[in-house]
Design a protein around this nucleic acid. Structure first.
Length: 456
DNA sequence: ATATGAGTTACACCCACAGTCTAAA
DNA sequence: TTTTTAGACTGTGGGTGTAACTCAT
């Protein structure tokens, strides 16, 4: 018997929502994520059946259990007979997939221990896919995505119907575009425009004994930047030609690759098949990497301190790998806020590739520290077939974890407001040289008036 | 090739205090 | 076992100081 659903507290939790950092039963998962279009974009995956607190990343076929990275490591990482167990990657999903669709991405989905099949689990059969955004790139689910995009998701309910109006170059609506076929081309690539994720294949890793940040040279990054620019420019051009969507708004004007930064904070945006929120992606103007520098060398040195770089010589390779094999697994890593975020920035004269560290959300961050990061530390993520050369010893992993934790202590990561009420108060609090002052005492700055005054 | 200084960047620290957490009663 | 209470702790933003860094000389 697993832990109870965080929402209803009644049923056994089965799925894990990273965005909510919540363990949910299937019924609540559906109810909660049907609430609005944003919540439907939450990436969910199965809950680890061993620790019942972490998102599962792999499914052990022999033991028929879903495991998070840590439990997988504990169970299979050491040189026991269990290490040879066949493990299947567990993909993430979003939207409101039906039972059959879930089982299409998780072939074992019906293997759940049948003990006391709850009403929630029975409801699974009534579910219908709604947003066509199962994140299982490059796999057979492309077909299902395409079918659904073409209207195959006929069971969509009223809430989800709203999504149908969303056209994706990804899943974001673009004025003037309403052809799902063309969107599919943009998603999957056409004869002239290869799918964006393929671009990462240009990076060649030559020596796996080197630090991963050394392995990818600046030339590699520049080349990748060029490819990204070219591809996105092509994407824009083809869209322009086919749809003439640029005529009526500023989108095209803004689509200046030389002027524009591509700040992919979400791995999926860079490599995932759905390329969700491409507008946001294109509009993201910040060049600053999550290491807080525009300088390539500085970013590079920062990267060397990142956990991935320290933990595994194959870290970067692994980070890139999902583009060709399993973006959903990558999403497992990348969508958690503490995991290193692959951040590629392309700009005229600048190019940087960096991992961000934790982004500060405490509850999620805590588990990320031991989950996603350790995943990279292990050097053998789920999407990698077992490879003796890259396997990591337990001692090495422990050392890497230690070093990572030390680094983490010394780093200040992206700030995220956890308590809006505190922020609201801080925003209106009077200060003296930036410091808060007691109510009624002298101040030199009043945020409310934005004037430097003095009051007693 | 090396040293130096100027300029730039990153980040820890400080403050008050409402809200949260924890342990004891 | 449950409720109440008191005290400790947390987190919020702007300015500052300092260390680390880059770059030109």
């Amino acid at each position: 018997m697993g832990y109870m659903c965080d929402f209803c507290g009644d049923q056994r939790s089965i799925v894990y929502c990273r965005s909510d950092a919540a363990c949910l039963c299937l019924s609540c998962d559906r109810n909660v994520h049907l609430a609005n279009a944003l919540s439907k974009r939450h990436s969910r995956t199965l809950l680890c059946e061993r620790c019942n607190s972490q998102p599962a990343l792999v499914r052990c076929a022999e033991e028929r259990v879903s495991l998070c990275q840590n439990c997988d490591w504990i169970g299979h990482g050491t040189s026991t007979s269990a290490s040879s167990h066949k493990r299947q990657t567990i993909n993430c999903y979003s939207g409101c997939p039906s039972a059959s669709e879930l089982s299409s991405i998780w072939s074992f989905v019906l293997d759940f221990p049948s003990g006391g099949e709850s009403a929630c689990e029975q409801e699974l059969g009534l579910m219908s896919i709604t947003d066509n955004s199962i994140k299982n790139s490059w796999g057979p689910n492309e077909d299902s995505i395409s079918q659904n995009a073409a209207g195959g998701g006929a069971e969509a309910n009223d809430v989800c119907d709203a999504d149908k109006s969303n056209v994706r170059v990804g899943a974001t609506s673009v004025p003037g575009i309403n052809s799902t076929t063309q969107n599919r081309d943009q998603i999957h690539g056409s004869a002239n425009n290869p799918p964006l994720p393929k671009l990462v294949e240009h990076i060649t890793i030559k020596d796996q004994t080197r630090n991963p940040w050394d392995m990818v040279s600046k030339n590699d990054l520049l080349e990748l930047r060029f490819d990204l620019n070219s591809h996105l420019a092509d994407l824009c051009c083809s869209a322009t030609k086919d749809l003439a969507f640029c005529e009526d708004d500023d989108l095209y004007e803004d689509f200046n690759m030389d002027e524009m930064d591509l700040n992919f904070e979400n791995y999926e945006e860079l490599f995932g098949v759905t390329l969700n929120h491409s507008e946001e992606l294109l509009e993201n103007g910040g060049i600053e990497s999550l290491f807080g520098t525009k300088d390539m060398s500085a970013a590079d040195s920062n990267c060397q301190g990142a956990v991935a770089a320290e933990g595994s010589s194959a870290g970067l390779v692994n980070a890139m790998q999902p583009a060709c094999s399993n973006a959903a697994s990558a999403d497992s890593i990348m969508s958690t806020k503490t995991e290193p975020i692959l951040c590629f920035t392309a700009k005229q004269g600048h190019s940087s590739l960096s991992f961000s560290g934790l982004t500060g959300d405490s509850n999620a961050g805590d588990y990320q520290e031991c989950d996603a990061s350790s995943m990279l530390l292990m050097g053998e993520p789920p999407w990698c077939p077992p490879c003796p050369e890259t396997s990591f010893t337990s001692a090495s992993r422990s050392k890497a974890v230690l070093r990572y934790k030390e680094k983490k202590k010394t780093r200040k990561f992206d700030k995220r407001v956890r308590y809006a009420s505190r922020k609201a108060r801080a925003d209106v609090r009077r200060r003296v040289k930036g410091r808060f002052v007691k109510a009624g005492e002298a101040y030199d700055y009043d945020p409310l008036t934005q004037t430097e005054t003095r009051s007693y």
